[in-house]
């Protein structure tokens, strides 16, 4: 399959890339890993007049902990997350997530910035970033701005990014002591988007009660779903089986999936609750709760 014709630009600096995006407006698209964009163009489900390839701009691929934050460069590959020592030891929820995205070949190209910027509710990073309280750094013509993840996903394939903004960094607050997160996905086969998937993050207080909880779902509606109802149910409580079960059921209730080849809507809703329970249980274990 051959995409419709477009022009291609390979800027070597961020300012040059932003200038090209400003010049070409809505007809331009950022090309990062290309693993969502190129299939869309090939199938002609999407079109672009100009592709602005950010692949030759230095300094956009890194993973470092600094100033109480994990900083991930916008063009960091999924495979780099998988192989990162700091991710493995300090942010295992990110490893859970990266490992179930697409397949190892796709992950050698696909980028974290692209995964968020695509605004696909089937992508796996959004739920994880929601429970981690991440921030997306977008660089535009004037300056950079920091977009809290809660306001980032606007609708199906739509984010808060302006057409001339580039995701340059993702920031994740370093986990406080006694915190743990987990991402659990149910897929038909390697390389498939989630039938259902859930991310959970908990911080326990000195008394062992849940101080903060984050619960979010993948492929459970037109945009990634954060279940504040489930989070409220858990906050301030002892994370025992009864409390986790109640929160997971509430999370399942916040799913509004649609039926497709992966299953009926009711089935997916049920699975969202099941996976929320698994993710919560693992998160609590990792927090040292049990």
């Amino acid at each position: 399959m051959i995409p419709a014709a477009f022009d291609y630009h390979a800027p070597t600096s961020l300012s040059e890339a932003v200038a090209l995006l400003s010049k070409h407006g809505d007809t331009a698209k950022v090309l990062s890993g290309g693993q969502s964009l190129l299939p869309l163009l090939k199938l002609r489900l999407g079109q672009a007049g100009h592709l602005i390839d950010i692949g030759r701009i230095p300094g956009l691929e890194y993973i470092k902990e600094e100033g109480g934050m994990l900083r991930i460069g916008g063009r960091t590959r999924e495979s780099a997350l998988e192989r990162s020592e700091v991710v493995r030891t300090r942010y295992p929820i990110l490893l859970d997530t990266a490992q179930v995205i697409a397949d190892p070949l796709v992950r050698n190209m696909a980028t974290v910035g692209g995964n968020l910027a695509h605004g696909d509710p089937g992508n796996d990073h959004p739920a994880t970033m929601l429970v981690l309280g991440a921030q997306v750094v977008a660089t535009g013509p004037k300056a950079e701005r920091v977009i809290p993840i809660d306001g980032f996903f606007v609708g199906l394939f739509t984010t808060a990014l302006q057409p001339d903004e580039i995701v340059t960094e993702i920031r994740i607050p370093a986990p406080p002591a006694r915190s743990g997160g987990a991402y659990v996905k149910f897929e038909r086969k390697v390389g498939d988007y989630a039938t259902a998937a859930a991310a959970a993050f908990v911080t326990l207080g000195a008394s062992g009660l849940v101080e903060r909880a984050g619960i979010a779902l993948t492929n459970a509606g037109p945009k990634p779903v954060r279940s504040t109802a489930a989070e409220k149910l858990l906050t301030g409580r002892r994370p025992d089986a009864a409390a986790l079960g109640e929160a997971a059921r509430a999370a399942g209730q916040s799913a509004t999936p649609s039926a497709d080849r992966r299953g009926a809507a009711d089935y997916k809703k049920e699975m969202a609750g099941v996976l929320a329970l698994r993710a919560l249980t693992k998160a609590v274990q990792r927090a040292g709760g049990r």
Binding site: L31, L38, L51, L105, V106, N108, M109
Partner: peptide
């Protein structure tokens, strides 16, 4: 699949210009 700067990637999903 080919090696692209040493990494295996799917060459049907990369542009020649890249």
């Amino acid at each position: 699949t080919i090696l692209f700067d040493g990494q295996p990637v799917k060459s049907c999903t990369v542009l020649a210009v890249q």
